[in-house]
Write a protein that binds this DNA or RNA. Structure first.
Length: 490
RNA sequence: GGCCUCAUCGUCUAGCGGCUAGGACGGAACCUUCUCAAGGUUCAAACCGGAGUUCGAUUCUCCGUGAGGUCACCA
């Protein structure tokens, strides 16, 4: 029985608080969010904290903060209970017991009479006989009364082949081997995921269950439980896996997946993360690549979700981040970059940082650098553009264009530049165009690169930087001459 | 091993019986430029294999192969 869908769309993201959020979990959250927003539906953040052993303190905050950073706002969550009550499973225990009792009354749940050791023995035997272990082979003939201490198992009502529809994969089916008497409520009184999520989805009116494809295998079990409870199925939406870059494994915490906050700290923009993640496992069907959040919401649809897994490619993320940096309002970039510059360890305490006039002067130039040079893809990298503040450190090799120039020639040009600039009035430095005309003829005669490259490196110390005239203009006569002098000492 | 899923350039992907198999990242080349590059133009780069179905298969079916998932008192 599949739900009819005239009702309001409700999706949920249901992580367990066992640590940080990585790319994979965020992508799942994103799709559920996008789909809910697209349909003017409800997006619920539900905390599945039924495994007290694996729980990591602080995770709930961490999860919320991650989603907040990406601006994936939820309608109900751990901080905002819904009409159905709390969004934290450990606070919903009575509900699970209530439904468990319904199953017991129907004769569809029973306490597990075995100890863990006995179970291990069964498993071992099955393993030796090279057949899958099925608990139902050991199901007791007569059910004891459940005292709440022993784990409660579900009695699969009917061993059969299940067929169902998945919104991204179409018709799916699985054989009887996929069905077994799984645990509903553990010995410690907490429900298992298998049980709790179904009860919660029911009570929270979840219409679309969007989760990773790893749950496809256990769907027949869920189905048998929906049937036993006589409740309708939600729409199943199985999302493709995000693979590690070596393509050998699903991305997961245990395999070195990064905390989403690492990307934040490296200076990636939330807009870029969202945009990029949306495009792994989904595509708009057009050739558009750069999306704002609003555009994503508008364009998102389940039938463009990919079936096969995808690799997270950081190079493309870097490119995309830059594209989003270019789209930011100038004031915002300025604020963000300047903030980072101020915290850059190499220039802390530099008086220029508090010189508003100077800072104003350099912002358009830094902006220009950000949008043009490939060495800057993140806000953090932008915060490393300290060449206006410090006497640059660089190798002689760089000054000589990595071997393209000779020391002798270079020194000759630098001497000329030094003398020429020395004779120039300080006021002339207020106009980059002026400086250009001053130097340009000489540069043209001697090969532009031969003259301009060393000058630029002497001033910035960078392989990539704004043009030398702009640098002269920003640094002024005194500082420029000082830096040229430094270069001559090499 | 059983069960399940998936399979187009190196990567993300378009394609939904007939296309010079398209785009993006990355790579290469050229143009432009005030050096570096940003931009522009161009190039290289893919339908896993084999049988069917069909006038015609990247596309549909089957069989291989490969990859991933799953077989917990974890989610």
């Amino acid at each position: 029985m599949q739900k009819n869908n005239n009702q309001k769309v409700v999706t949920r993201f249901a992580p367990s608080p066992t640590g940080f959020m990585h790319i994979g979990s965020i992508r799942t959250a994103l799709f559920a969010y996008l789909f809910a927003r697209k349909n003017n539906g409800t997006f619920i953040l539900r905390i599945e904290d039924t495994d007290k052993e694996r729980e990591v303190p602080g995770s709930i905050d961490h999860i919320q903060n991650s989603l907040k950073w990406l601006d994936l706002n939820w309608d109900f969550g751990p901080d905002k209970p819904g009409p159905f009550g709390s969004c934290i499973q450990s606070e919903r225990l009575p509900t699970y017991v209530e439904y468990a009792k319904k199953l017991i009354d129907k004769g569809l749940a029973y306490p597990d009479p075995y100890t863990q050791d006995e179970l291990a023995l069964f498993r071992k035997k099955a393993d030796e006989e090279k057949r899958p272990f099925l608990f139902r082979d050991h199901r007791p003939d007569k059910f004891e009364e459940w005292d709440g201490k022993k784990p409660l198992r579900f009695k699969v009502p009917e061993i059969k082949r299940y067929k169902w529809t998945d919104a991204v994969r179409g018709e799916l089916e699985a054989g009887e081997e996929a069905l077994d008497d799984f645990i509903l409520i553990k010995g410690d009184g907490y429900p298992t995921y298998n049980f709790a999520h179904i009860i919660d989805d029911l009570n929270m009116n979840v219409t679309h269950v969007m989760r990773g494809e790893e749950f496809i295998s256990s769907t027949p079990r869920f189905l048998s439980l929906y049937d036993a409870l006589e409740i309708p199925y939600p729409v199943f939406v199985s999302l493709p896996t995000i693979l590690r870059d070596d393509k050998t494994k699903k991305l997961g915490k245990r395999d070195g997946a990064k905390d989403i906050f690492e990307y934040r700290d490296e200076g990636f923009l939330p807009e870029a993360m969202i945009n990029f993640l949306a495009l792994i496992g989904w595509n708009p069907g057009t050739e558009q690549e750069i999306f704002s959040r609003e555009e994503l919401v508008k364009a998102f649809s389940i039938d463009q979700i990919q079936k096969s897994g995808g690799v997270f490619n950081e190079e493309k993320l870097a490119w995309m981040n830059k594209e989003h940096m270019k789209l930011l309002p100038e004031s915002l970039v300025r604020e963000s970059v300047l903030e980072r510059l101020k915290h850059s360890t190499t220039i802390t305490g530099n008086a220029l940082l508090n010189n508003e006039k100077f800072m104003k002067k350099i912002t358009p130039i830094i902006m220009d650098h950000i949008s043009k040079w490939s060495d800057i893809n993140t806000m953090t990298e932008a915060g490393e553009l300290t060449y206006f503040f410090n006497t640059p450190q660089y190798d002689t090799a760089l000054l000589l264009w990595n071997g393209k120039l000779t020391l002798k020639e270079t020194k000759k040009h630098l001497e000329w530049l030094k003398n020429t600039l020395n004779e120039t009035k300080p006021e002339s430095f207020s106009d980059a165009e002026n400086l250009k005309t001053l130097i340009f003829d000489y540069a043209t005669q001697n090969g532009k690169g031969n003259v301009l490259w060393p000058l630029r490196v002497a001033l910035s110390g960078m392989e990539k930087s704004p043009d030398p005239f702009t640098l002269l203009y920003v640094l002024g006569k005194q500082e420029s001459l000082l830096r040229i002098d430094n270069a001559l000492k090499k």
